[in-house]
Design a protein around this nucleic acid. Structure first.
Lengths: 169, 169, 169, 169
DNA sequence: TTTT
DNA sequence: TTTT
């Protein structure tokens, strides 16, 4: 059920390593910053390049996978939906954020720095395949509930403390 | 050219009549507010409904069409890309906005109040059909709808008899 | 998991009432024929219209909903994936089919003839809402559990020789 | 204009080198065979893998680019529409084909064998970048990959007063 | 076979 | 602010 369609499809590269946190209930919440660049010709015939930095968030199993396999520079495909949020900053000012809540992810050929794992693999939200964490190779490392990492986006980063309810929405 | 994919697909209803403005150069810029609602079951098994309000913007010919045919309550399909912007408000505070820049639009069956014309029509950005501009403030107005043409296709219908295995693949 | 993305998004109208069958296991399998029409200008500047008829199939709960609510003429949004199948006809000749296996469906404003239910509602495959089958109005018709047919892949490659007209369509 | 939406999004790998032909009018028509693989658990809990081979066709400038840069094994993103065709074989039997007519293509990180250049580049149908045609039979050849450019956003107040430059971006 |  |  629902009324309407809210779908986003992105292919881009991560600006930083993923940031994974865990809710009290133990659910992974991974955030990445994903760049997509487009080029247009302005009316003077000059190429104009513009990059959008998308805040993408993965929940649950998908959050674990994203946190484990993606790295700064990784290229990936993301499918999800747009979620607009509003919160009041510590300065008492209302702020707005836009996130892409992913429900599918696919690693693509080109990795960034973090050498590591092989190519691809497509992951959806739901009753997904088992993936032994801490897996092979020089696979990603994950501490338990880690610290936020500096995104460079111009946009606010609302103190994410998640509760289990917060999520799938 | 470009690097990456930044694609949004929406089906929703307008919360208000479109707002059309014109640049000095005479280009139409139409903005709409489009609602998409999703329903999820929270962990207590209750239905939780959530509506996103998308700021959609149409430029040029598409802006004229959107301004002319869409109305408060209209249902439409929009395809476009996400654009994040930052600006400094009059209060000197930095603000952030997210827009969906449409490059395709399709009116769907259900209209809202603004009675007017019939159902659909799909419009893309580019060298599109001629449509008398001018429009501005008011209700739709349309020349005769295109006449039907005989399709020539036809394909087989393989007597499907299913077993349970057949399926989710 | 998986490797690659295979995604189809359609908005079109049903050419006929849905056809719902049930597997031995009781799973609904509903098929519809969905028309999408596009218009292009050929090189003589004439409008050329072309309609594709998509074979869309819905399984399980989604199949029940589609069978119950859609009707000839209904407009709907479908999301799914392309599946190519090959089978041997009763004449011993190999035949090929292409289906869109839907995993999401959304009824849109405009209905066809089948008066019946209200406007919209978005349905995904999975643990979906309860919907009393055999429902109201001039509800669906179904035949009994039928026999399986051999799917299989592989398809022909028709030696295409192009002319300039052939194209952008 | 048009009525309906017919959209396909694929990410997959080429099963063979592209096949480029030219119309009498000199337009490139490039065909590739693109694999997408999905994995599901059947009802016995076993993983079932299935690969779809999509026939993708690129016309014009996009056909030249696809023919020049893609190779067997290349991973790419394709956006297009489904086209069903029917023709009569030399044996007098009617045959059916399904093609994905691409209108956008993006090379992705992972290459197959055809060594060649780096990562990506997104190409749409339309008045696209200049690319020397000719290419024909052989391996990719590319000028230096585009240098990354300092992203960053920043744009005008939403008080929308537009200038003509503002736009298609 | 739909729809406008 | 829409829609069901």
């Amino acid at each position: 059920m629902a009324r309407g369609v809210n779908k986003v499809i992105l292919v881009g590269n991560l600006g930083n390593d993923p940031d994974t946190k865990y809710t009290q209930g133990g659910m992974a919440v991974t955030r990445i910053s994903l760049a997509t660049t487009s080029v247009r010709n302005d009316k003077d015939g000059n190429k104009q390049e513009r990059t959008e930095w998308h805040r993408v968030v993965f929940f649950g199993k998908l959050g674990e996978i994203a946190g484990e396999y993606l790295r700064k520079g990784s290229q990936c495909y993301v499918e999800g939906e747009i979620r607009y949020d509003k919160y009041t900053g510590q300065d008492g000012v209302e702020k707005y954020t836009t996130d892409i809540v992913a429900n599918e992810m696919q690693m693509l050929g080109g990795r960034g720095d973090g050498g590591g794992g092989g190519g691809g693999g497509n992951y959806e939200r739901g009753n997904r395949p088992q993936r032994s964490a801490g897996g092979g190779g020089d696979a990603p490392q994950r501490s338990a509930p880690p610290q936020r990492q500096a995104p460079q986006q111009q946009r606010p980063a609302p103190m994410d403390d998640f509760s289990d309810d917060d999520i799938p929405f």
